[in-house]
């Protein structure tokens, strides 16, 4: 595949927290390499603490890896790239002292969008996520699902080619995340954006992703990449199809032994140090 079809190239990235031999020492990621195509939605899935979020933060430039490099387009990532990459965090990333509209505007101000362009772009992205009527509400007045829609609107308004999503629906209930997943599939199929999406839900991964990268237990590395060959936008009918079930089962089999391993690791390290591992 030609290099310019690749949005993100992850090359032999390793990362560790703390100094070797110290109590806090955790080898989070080991020699991870991954190519992410322009316009695809790639899900990262794996046992908790395997380094999925670490990889996402390395791609986003919020974390400098111990070794290896990440290229976004042809630029090496050395810090946040606000013009190329937008983030949607798990929760609590909207500023509670600003309204939804002000939150979206602030993001664009940080990014450097001229003042006159901000308002129309904010209105447009709020309309895209169905929050036009709640522009003047404060985040505390919205439900968890609506807050995540607002966070998505903020990311969309930045008009970046890449959006990184770190378990964006992780704190929501099953029904809300199902509806949001459907809406996201519809919304993103139109935009042609490159999405990297961290989740621990097998169903969510199969439903949303073009490809699913399965992480091994710590030190995390990518064990296998599964293609989900189903056109976007995906309908809720896909969720009950045999194809969906088969893919979900394949993922489950891949993950199952890694989750066991990860659990054994964490009980062993707790017994050894009395401390806990870091994600």
């Amino acid at each position: 595949m030609a290099a310019n079809d690749l949005a993100i190239r992850v090359r032999n990235v390793s990362h560790q927290f703390g100094e070797e031999g110290s109590r806090q020492f955790v080898r989070a990621m080991l020699e991870t390499s991954l190519d992410i195509n322009r316009g695809e939605l790639l899900c990262l899935i794996g046992p908790s603490g395997c380094g999925k979020s670490t990889l996402l933060n390395v791609i986003g430039g919020l974390l400098t890896p111990t070794s290896g490099q990440v290229l976004v387009g042809d630029t090496e990532v050395r810090g946040p790239l606000p013009h190329e990459i937008a983030y949607v965090f798990q929760e609590n990333a909207l500023f509670p002292w600003s309204t939804v509209l002000e939150n979206v505007n602030l993001g664009m101000m940080f990014q450097g969008v001229p003042k006159t362009e901000r308002e129309p772009r904010a209105r447009k992205s709020l309309a895209a996520v169905g929050l036009s009527d709640f522009a003047n509400h404060y985040p505390g007045q919205l439900s968890g699902g609506m807050r995540q829609r607002a966070a998505l609107a903020r990311a969309l308004s930045l008009e970046t080619g890449i959006i990184l999503m770190d378990e964006p629906f992780g704190a929501l209930d099953e029904q809300t995340r199902m509806v949001l997943g459907e809406d996201l599939s519809v919304l993103l199929s139109r935009t042609g954006k490159t999405i990297v999406f961290v989740t621990h839900s097998l169903g969510e991964a199969v439903f949303l992703a073009d490809r699913v990268a399965v992480f091994s237990a710590r030190p995390g590395t990518i064990k296998e990449v599964i293609e989900i060959d189903e056109p976007h936008p995906r309908k809720s009918g896909f969720m009950t199809s045999e194809k969906f079930t088969n893919l979900r089962n394949i993922l489950f089999a891949l993950l199952h032994e890694e989750i066991r391993k990860a659990m054994e690791q964490s009980t062993a390290s707790e017994r050894a140090a009395g401390g806990d591992g870091k994600a």
Partner: peptide, 11 residues
Amino acid sequence: AYVLSARSMGA
């Protein structure tokens, strides 16, 4: 999370 998200947007 407030600081990280602001930094990620280029603050």
